[in-house]
């Protein structure tokens, strides 16, 4: 066993299947089995499951796990980024990318929050170094049990009061795509639509000052327009970098991709975090549904 662990450690793969101290710490009611952790949230508390060890400095890692959260209320923090995971009634996979600081530190934890009791469970956790130059990030929906995607969520302007009044973001079958599987669907329901609705991704890794390609398959209910936004992140007082890439869509699946020149971190400080987000938008003038598959974020040079 030891040699394997050594090998795994050397390769940068941290199989944290064993949720034990001191690697992990927890409080607030988490029940730990050997490879999974379960919580029944009590309103007014903030139970946390924290990864306690440090990492290599200035390194990008991928945190991957399965989670179950039928009522929602489960959050994950990686570095400075906190994501509210979408409710899932079956175990759903999720990936998070984060970059450590120059001392190898990055906060990594799961917690629940909210004013209602919720149940959540996480398992099959793995943390590994991620070579963003050699490996593309694939955001696909084939393994999402649905109805909500795990890797995208509705933009705050869309979600408003959290209801589906404006529209829904779901995972639907994509039998008419050559790869079959599933797609993410942005669906407009409002009578007075806004200009567009957007779905935002979990963070993806980025090296500032380099070129990347973002692409995916798109299909709409009618001829219209959509967009892919690459967002460097907003912070008060700092310049906000966003790349808008608009394109036409039609009722047939079409692949669209764009080359993105990411600014240097000296120019856009937020990019020091080593991650940014992607956003898929549908212009509501003509379309009321946009299906999306196989979003890929890949390094060019």
């Amino acid at each position: 066993m030891r040699p394997i662990i050594t090998l795994l450690l050397l390769s940068g793969f941290l199989q944290a299947g064993e949720l034990t101290k001191p690697d992990w710490n927890w409080y607030g009611g988490w029940q730990i089995n050997s490879d999974s952790a379960r919580i029944t949230h009590t309103p007014g508390t903030w139970p946390k499951l924290i990864y306690a060890r440090s990492f290599k400095a200035d390194t990008v890692y991928r945190l991957r796990f399965l989670y179950l959260a039928p009522e929602g209320g489960l959050f994950c923090r990686t570095g400075k980024y906190t994501a509210k995971l979408s409710p899932q009634k079956e175990f759903a996979p999720v990936d998070f990318y984060f970059k450590t600081d120059n001392q190898g530190k990055a906060e990594l934890c799961c917690f629940t929050s909210g004013e209602s009791p919720v149940h959540a469970e996480v398992k099959d956790i793995s943390i590994e170094e991620f070579d963003g130059k050699a490996n593309a990030v694939h955001l696909d929906f084939n393994r999402d049990p649905g109805p909500l995607p795990t890797s995208f969520y509705r933009h705050v302007r869309w979600e408003r009061d959290g209801s589906d009044k404006l529209g829904t973001l779901t995972v639907v079958p994509a039998d008419d795509h050559v790869d079959g599987g599933k797609a993410m669907r942005l669906k407009l329901l409002a009578q007075n639509p806004p200009k567009r609705i957007n779905a935002v991704s979990l963070p993806v890794p980025v090296i500032p000052g380099r070129r990347y390609r973002v692409g995916g398959w798109f299909k709409a209910d009618r001829d219209g327009k959509a967009q892919v936004i690459v967002d460097g992140g907003w912070e008060k007082g700092l310049e906000h970098w966003v790349s808008f890439n608009n394109f036409t869509v039609s009722p047939s699946w079409q692949h669209r991709s764009f080359e993105i020149e990411v600014p240097k971190e000296e120019k856009i400080a937020q990019l020091k975090s080593g991650v940014l987000t992607l956003s898929i938008g549908m212009f509501c003038e003509n379309c009321s549904e946009l299906d999306v598959k196989e979003i890929t974020w890949s390094y060019i040079r």
């Binding site: 050559v178 047939s252 699946w253």
Partner: peptide, 11 residues
């Protein structure tokens, strides 16, 4: 038959 050249799908 659903067929793709990587850019477009045809049926």
């Amino acid at each position: 038959i659903i067929i793709s050249d990587g850019k477009e799908l045809q049926s």
